[in-house]
Amino acid sequence: MPSWFSKVFKSEPAKPEPVQVPVREVRSAGLDLSGDRPVPEPHAPRKVVHAPILKDAAEQSGWSPEIRIKARVEKGNRACTFLLDRPVLEGHSAWFPHVGAAAESPLAQVLFAIPSVDTVLIHGYTLTVARNPTVFGDWDQLAKEIGSAIRGHLIEDRPVVTQAFVAAIPPEETIRQTIQRVIDTEINPGIAAHSGAIRLDRVEGNTVYIEMMGGCQGCAASDVTLRQGVHEAFRSALPGLGAILDVTDHAAGTNPFYNQLPAGMR
């Protein structure tokens, strides 16, 4: 039992009377809330505010003079996000689940040529690269190799994606309707048993922003639901989809990535 529990529930439940007392009365006495047992939060619900996370000066330094890239290994150690000082892809995002899907992205092809690169997501100022799940250990060497490949590609001013890739991206309205249909017919009926729900927040280009509600909000398993359920359902229905971003305020401060970008990149 956590130590704060005894501070919250200061009084012991009343002891049941011995033998003569009927069972119903004993239970009633045990659950009596009329004493000094505290009631959770008597106040009206308040809104939860988030203060900006401050970074140490050391975290802001050390940029490369050509193209500044920082790497951040994501939770679970399978993926690493590369943060650049300039947009990599503007107006759209691009998801490449394997090398075969990267024919229209010269940059993704360069990255897939690096052994153990498994998937590539390009969005705004970032590239998120996942490595093969059978590879373990730290990211230092692989991240340097990937960072060097990204820098070399961009310095040479080579295209990130081809015109054909951009032309094949579905219109926003098509994306909105398709995603809404998947949410209504596949996802929400499935997670309703957990009192959860997904809401389409908005579509920008081919990037989809969703919000997790009800039992999903703040749930420790929400990330698994998102990646293994929602992502797969969306991408199966709409192969041209780019990034899928969770805008949920999980009241735990983990909402994504954009809260934690180094200063100057926000």
Binding site: A44, R46, K47, V48, V49, H50, A51, P52, I53, L54, E59, G62, W63, S64, I69, K70, A71, R72, V73, E74, K75, F82, L83, D140, A143, K144, I146, G147, S148, R151, A251, A252, G253, T254, Q260, P262
Partner: peptide
């Protein structure tokens, strides 16, 4: 955490998991 103002209708989130390491390339 940086500057923020709390009032009678707000609470401050103070739960943050360990920051993921960021390094330069």
């Amino acid at each position: 955490l940086g500057a923020v103002t709390l009032d009678t209708e707000s609470d401050l989130n103070i739960w943050y998991e360990r920051p993921q390491a960021v390094f330069d390339l």
